[in-house]
Nucleic acid binder design. Sequence first.
DNA 1: ATAACGGTAACATTAAAAGTTACAATTAAA
DNA 2: TTTAATTGTAACTTTTAATGTTACCGTTAT
Lengths: 151, 151
Amino acid sequence: MRASTKYATAVQICIFLKHMPDQVLSSTTIAKSVNTNPVVIRRLIQELRNHGIIASSSGTKGGFYLAKEASAINLWDIYLATRDEEFFKRPKVNPECVVSSNLKALVYDVFGEAEEAMKSKLQQTTIADLNTHLENILGQSEAKTAIKQGR
Amino acid sequence: MRASTKYATAVQICIFLKHMPDQVLSSTTIAKSVNTNPVVIRRLIQELRNHGIIASSSGTKGGFYLAKEASAINLWDIYLATRDEEFFKRPKVNPECVVSSNLKALVYDVFGEAEEAMKSKLQQTTIADLNTHLENILGQSEAKTAIKQGR
DNA sequence: ATAACGGTAACATTAAAAGTTACAATTAAA
DNA sequence: TTTAATTGTAACTTTTAATGTTACCGTTAT
């Protein structure tokens, strides 16, 4: 799963968990929604667990659930949990080239500012917001049937 | 070259070209600076050429140069030229899942805003700015010897 | 006890990126 | 006018990262 796909998938999972409240969802159920393998889901969720976004229970009827209120989880939180490389990743530095060896210093400030700008926007949208938006799209009648679970 | 590395490399090349004015630089020279292969450089520069950022001349003593003033090339221009996937890339949509099938619509606005916020910051820094910054770091004495060219 | 689950390691497969070789077309310069 | 240095690009190989799969241990509800 490429970095950008991983992020979108993580957002999808969080909305899914909020959308099916008072249930834990198994990796198999989530995997169906994402069209992938349960182990891939479990691996991805580890990163969200490490950031206190998703929690799990073991054993029969175990599964995953949001570790805190959906209104306390925003898109920046999930971004931080799932990004695995710097936005501006330098190629191998060539110490004989003054451009190469100084590149990071040259762009450090502007990329810090750009990331801050993005952060302040992403922090404004929570999983609760997105779920509300989803329910508006669906209408209340069908709001609680995200996917056929088969369990 | 992953997307983020490609971007950093493209920025490096543009600064390099500005830093060595009144010369065209060969793909071999640039490749040394980046520690890679000349063909890789030529391929990357194609994307910058398509966006009117870099131009080239053929034949002996041919090579690459900035297609316009360094003060008219900013970091957002280069970002647009080198990004090859959406920031928020969805996994394969599962039409049976209402979260999956509505995900793009749910996040469309906020990601548009986040990208706009980033854009407005990146547009504020040009290649001319970065080169000035570099020359300040180096001091004028050694400002014109970015790399041993060997040609 | 049993069966359904998460956690995780080991391995296999696939896809993408990077590197390489080759060569036609162009052009400066000997 | 020949030669050599260059870009542009295609074809191919190699390497690396992502993804998928299998397996098994520990946990827990039934």
